[in-house]
Amino acid sequence: MVRDTLHDIPVLKMMTLYFLGSLWYPMDQLTSMRLLPRILESVACAAWVLPTVVEWGRARTSRLMPLLWAALVLGVLAFIPYAIRYRQSEARLLFHLLPAFTALWAISVGPRPTRWTWMALAPCLVAWVVIFGRYAAG
């Protein structure tokens, strides 16, 4: 199974593209093919991760960080057998890690999260406008 998957270049390409492209956007199978809402939510999700990188100094002082990183690594590792078994990735599985992402974000942004909050919220709000616009247009 593993050898078959690794030798199947088109499948590998599909897995890679799908996983990278839909990593943060398992919205629905029609919307996920549309570029604009996909980009918007990707930006929103990048804003979730960004504080962990930018505010690394603050996050590093938290004694719980190894635990949270372990949760993320374990979760991501869990995708590998899934991808090999089914020759696809399922971005929805990443939501299993949401509590860990939430905890990392909270520690990273510190007591005044306004700027980071809006960086994550604004693309979501625009995405909802796009979704409602498409819904209204039928």
Binding site: W24, Y25, P26, M27, P37, E41, A44, W48, S62, L64, F95, L98, P99, T102, A103, W105, A106, I107, V109, G110, P111, R112, P113, T114, W116, T117, A120, L121, C124, L125, A127, W128, I131
Partner: peptide
């Protein structure tokens, strides 16, 4: 509650972000 426990002041932001996340 996780966010609030780890970093007081972040809980409400987390609630809004999760509530409005389209994919979620």
């Amino acid at each position: 509650s996780i966010a609030h426990r780890l970093a007081p002041g972040t809980g409400d932001a987390v609630a809004w972000m999760l509530a409005l996340h389209p994919g979620l």
